[in-house]
């Protein structure tokens, strides 16, 4: 096939007359991997939210007669060194990962988005100051900054979540500022201004909606990064502490028992990878649909 082949253009755009559900159906027919990814995340989220009902066992319930078992009918994901059911632990662990991602994206998205909006709209000193501060946050490798913040705040769910949130802010700010700067010059903004619109109206009603789609794509990148970083922090012993069933903690413990049971460390790792891969797939599909700059989902990711 020649290199000049055009990417298939999305038929979804400009079909305002069709219902939301129908448009979503068309979109997912075009983006099959993304549809599968959405399905996986829905199942995972429902399981995590309804964990007490869905999980076959109490995640802390020990069974010393069945330690480090491989997958079986009664324990589909096997058991850990105390005979706790790994499927239940992975389901409960999903609560931690998803909560971290949701909190990080919500807070970093609003703080970073607002800061970027202000920096792009005001431009002068305030804007420059905001962006220099973001540059400083970006000057430190993401994982290192997260670990230092988590270490400063102490171990646990909240310190890890705060650390992940802080390092997610600059990407939102940069992106919001860039889209505001380009939208600001558009004719419809200029005409709204000459029609007498106030600053707040211009910022939030005129400019902001047009800067939204790159921010939504960035939200998917940030969610994937948040889940990866939370797991990395827990893996290093700086996040949620045992006996809480965080995926990273489970893998760190499972690593010591690789010779007895490979499933213990492997199962949380597989679910973690599938989750991040799903979010990344959806983000890239949205980006194809909306166009826009090539974002690197690896930004700020831990190594």
């Amino acid at each position: 096939m020649s290199a000049r082949t055009q990417e298939p253009s999305s038929p979804v755009r400009n079909r305002r007359t069709r219902s939301g559900l129908k448009r979503f159906g068309d979109w997912s027919a075009n983006e099959k991997p993304a549809a599968v990814a959405i399905g996986f995340l829905v199942v995972l989220s429902v399981a995590a939210i309804a964990a007490p009902i869905v999980a076959p066992y109490d995640p802390l319930q020990q069974d010393l007669g069945a330690i480090l078992n491989g997958p079986s009918w009664s324990h589909p994901f096997g058991t850990d060194e105390l005979g706790r059911d790994m499927l239940s632990r992975v389901i409960y662990g999903g609560r931690i990962s998803l909560a971290t991602a949701a909190i990080a994206v919500a807070i970093a998205g609003s703080v970073g988005g607002l800061a970027g909006l202000a920096a792009g709209y005001i431009e002068r000193t305030t804007g420059a100051l905001i962006m220099r501060f973001m540059d400083f946050l970006l000057a430190v490798p993401g994982i290192l900054l997260a670990i230092t913040i988590a270490a400063v705040l102490g171990n646990g769910f909240w310190p890890a979540t705060i650390a992940v949130t802080v390092i997610s802010i600059p990407a939102f700010a940069r992106l919001a500022r860039a889209s505001v700067l380009s939208t600001k010059q558009e004719e419809f903004v200029q005409s709204t201004r000459s029609a007498g619109a106030g600053h707040l109206y211009l910022m939030f009603r005129t400019i902001f909606p047009n800067a939204l789609s790159p921010l939504i794509v960035q939200a998917s990148v940030a969610a994937a990064t948040a889940i990866l970083l939370e797991a990395a922090l827990s893996f290093l012993g700086l996040g949620t502490q045992p006996p809480s069933p965080s995926w990273g903690t489970a893998m760190a413990l499972g690593k010591s028992y690789l010779k007895q049971s490979i499933w213990y460390a492997l199962m949380p790792g597989i679910v973690l990878t599938a989750t991040v891969l799903s979010i990344d797939t959806i983000g890239r599909a949205l980006q194809r649909t909306w166009g826009g700059s090539a974002l690197d989902s690896a930004a700020g990711r831990g190594a």
Binding site: A224, L228, A231, A232, F235, G248, M251, G254, K255, L258, K259, I262, A265, L266, G269, I270, L272, T273, V276, L277, D280, T281, R284, S297, A298, R301, G302, A303
Partner: peptide, 22 residues
């Protein structure tokens, strides 16, 4: 590419140890 970016380094590392070490 998507896979290599999504899979955490500690998962790759553990699988590597599992295959070549254990």
């Amino acid at each position: 590419s998507s896979f290599s970016l999504a899979v955490p380094t500690f998962v790759v590392g553990i699988v590597f140890i599992l295959i070549f070490g254990v």
